[in-house]
């Protein structure tokens, strides 16, 4: 009881997949994220949009506890993320790892099961079967034994997604999964996102391509160091709010949106 009272969230809100309040992050002295608060609804696909250097990845990493926040609170299903790690799946940026590492696609997907194996557990036959299923869901089953450096960029991205699936999470964080992928992979990813949504899972995606935002996401979060806007895509992804988020750097968007209207 006392714990809920201390928290800034009321009990009805506390069950949200992700509640962020007053989150600030600074590198050296410069703030890269200032006082960001929002709360996502279960079963939604949420896009995080903003210019380069807006703190999109930083926010994701701070929410996951990968980098220290100078202030703020992050709750996952009402509890600190440290107690809820098993409910969280994470897809880092593809460039963040060395794809020359001596391992194959199936083995990378198996890494998604490490979280629930505990300190000394080893992946068993059923974990391997599960990992293979996850590879199948992203259309990569035939590449299970392939050394990861021999996969194309899009295929590597799909292996990363399969690994997140193997984490069997309820809340997913994906850092630019669509960056630099081929059309087949883009399609595979969006099908997967739709399926996760159907299963009632919540997916938060850092996204770059403004042209596909309306098509892919239920809600968008506009970020530029501070939170600019957050809400259902139709109400939030508007000319005026985007203009505010991107400042003067939005000329190209006028054209892409012009096609639609």
């Amino acid at each position: 009881m006392s714990q809920t009272a201390k928290s800034v969230f009321t009990s009805s809100e506390a069950a949200a997949p992700l509640s962020v309040s007053g989150l600030s992050v600074a590198y050296q002295k410069k703030p890269v994220l200032r006082n960001v608060s929002f709360q996502v609804k279960e079963g939604e696909l949420i896009g995080i949009i903003g210019p380069n250097g807006a703190g999109k990845s930083t926010m994701m990493k701070a929410a996951l506890g990968l980098i220290p926040a100078i202030s703020g609170e992050v709750l996952v299903y009402g509890k600190p993320y440290k107690e809820q790690r098993k409910l969280i799946g994470y897809v880092p940026q593809r460039e963040s790892v060395d794809w020359d590492f001596p391992t194959n696609a199936l083995d990378v997907v198996l890494m998604g099961t490490y979280g629930r194996l505990g300190w000394f557990g080893r992946p068993k036959a059923k974990d391997k079967a599960h990992a293979l299923e996850c590879l199948e869901k992203v259309g990569m089953a035939e590449f299970a034994d392939r050394q990861i450096s021999q996969l194309s960029g899009g295929q590597q991205q799909r292996v990363f997604l399969a690994r997140a699936l193997a984490q069997n999470a309820k809340l997913y964080f994906m850092d630019e999964p669509f960056a630099g992928v081929d059309a087949a992979t883009e399609k595979a990813i969006i099908t997967l996102l739709q399926e996760l949504k159907k299963q009632g899972k919540t997916v938060i995606v850092v996204h770059h391509d403004l042209a596909t935002v309306e098509q892919y996401f239920d809600s968008v979060l506009l970020l530029n160091v501070e939170l600019q806007a957050f809400g259902p895509t139709a109400e939030t992804f508007t000319q005026e709010k985007l203009q505010r988020t991107y400042g003067g750097r939005l000329a190209f968007l006028d054209q892409s949106r012009g096609d639609r209207s």
Binding site: L66, K82, R85, I88, Y90, S96, F101, Y114, W119, R122
Partner: peptide, 22 residues
Amino acid sequence: AAFYKQFKLCSFDPALAAAIGI
């Protein structure tokens, strides 16, 4: 041998390792 999977994941993808609590 005891911490093989931790050593492996921390070498390949420290961000995921940290995210799952290693």
